[in-house]
């Protein structure tokens, strides 16, 4: 099948899945007594209805794109890097740690250092999962889940312990950073151009690595057949650890950006579950890089727009989560139906 044909097939599948999940969500809304069209309208207007909202949406889009494109690197060698959540958190921890010696502010160079520290933190956490997988034979799902818990525990310990606010014992977060260490947005636009550029760079980097380098091809080969990869001298274990570490670095960058660009401090929910959401995005995109930015955008719109549901309709905002989940289920369903249909056709 040609590249264009495969691409439009994934796109068609995606469209079918979107349609299916819209139908399902509409039913759900009808059951809960909300007017479906109006609800959708409010949801989407909440994400793209104004320039400011668009800014917010892009601010969510950035970590999602960073994490989703990072996951492409680990999906290529067939890894389920569910530990990406923890890698985001470690990025946030490292960035916060890097900035703690500067309570009175510092130069933008320090800020850049914090981002690099975040990348190192994420890469370090992913490296552990990778080594557990290749040396310890611990499946990356279990290793990753375990490390996620450890990362959350570490955050809680830091917030409640060594990094607590003076005189306060609260889970709410650390002391806010000095404003000179905030990655600031353009005026009236809660979005930093630096983050945006970094996210775009990340996805182009990933596309370049996977499409145009032998390293990327090796990753795919490892994913296809680790044993053959070994025979071809592709060093599958080394590739796995490298892919994990690079993925972790990007996730860590997302975490660092959450700290310096969004919350300006470390808090327990710093990852905002973007890692898990990115896993959904990547699956929904059928691991195709060019579908990642639009799907991330769609998810970001849902995330940001969902605030409007309780604000305007007194509906629970978890509806947007339901839509995201149903979408992913739908894409699997569409995939499954397609296979069934082909099987039927072949048997006839």
């Amino acid at each position: 099948m040609s590249y264009a044909a495969r691409f439009s097939l994934s796109l068609g599948r995606l469209a079918a899945a979107v349609f299916l999940s819209l139908v399902f969500t509409t039913l759900l809304l009808l059951v809960s007594g909300a007017p479906p069209l109006h609800t959708f309208a409010i949801l989407f207007a909440g994400g793209i209805g104004s320039v400011a909202k668009l800014g917010q949406t892009i601010a969510v889009w950035i970590p999602l794109v960073l994490c989703s494109s990072a996951l492409l690197l680990t999906f290529a060698p067939g890894l389920w890097n569910i530990g990406i959540e923890g890698q985001i958190i470690l990025g946030a921890i490292f960035a916060t740690g890097f900035l703690r010696p500067f309570p009175a502010g510092a130069s933008p160079l320090v800020l850049a250092g914090a981002l690099i520290a975040g990348m190192i933190g994420g890469a370090f956490w992913a490296y552990i999962a990778g080594v557990l997988r290749t040396w310890g034979r611990v499946h990356e799902i279990f290793g990753g889940l375990g490390l996620n818990f450890v990362a959350l525990g570490l955050t809680l310990w830091l917030i409640f312990g060594p990094w607590r606010r003076p005189g306060v014992a609260s889970m709410s977060g650390t002391e806010p950073l000095h404003p000179s260490l905030w990655l600031k947005g353009i005026k009236g636009f809660s979005l930093s151009p630096v983050s945006l550029v970094l996210a775009l760079l990340a996805i182009f980097l990933v596309i370049y690595l996977l499409r145009s380098t032998r390293w990327g091809l090796s990753l795919k080969a490892v994913g296809q057949n680790p044993e053959a990869a070994l025979l071809y001298g592709l060093k599958p274990n080394k590739r796995i650890v490298e892919a994990m570490a690079l993925c972790g670095a990007l996730a860590g960058l997302a975490g660092a950006l959450q700290v310096v660009g969004v919350y300006h401090r470390l808090l327990p929910a710093i990852s905002s579950n973007y890692g898990y959401t990115a896993l959904l995005v990547t699956m929904l995109a059928s691991f195709r890089p060019n579908l990642i930015p639009p799907i991330c955008f769609f998810f970001a719109v849902l995330n940001v727009g969902s605030i409007q549901l309780p604000l305007q309709l007194k509906l629970d905002s978890s509806l947007s989560g339901v839509i995201q989940g149903v979408l992913v289920l739908s894409i699997f369903l569409v995939h499954g139906l397609e296979e069934r249909w082909q099987l039927l056709r072949r048997q006839k």
């Binding site: 091809l217 090796s218 080969a221 296809q224 057949n225 044993e227 053959a228 990869a229 071809y232």
Partner: peptide, 18 residues
Amino acid sequence: LEHGLFPDLSLNEHFHLA
């Protein structure tokens, strides 16, 4: 197919890897 080749990679990619 199980041990020697990469099922979904193309012939071209096989030559490049080898």
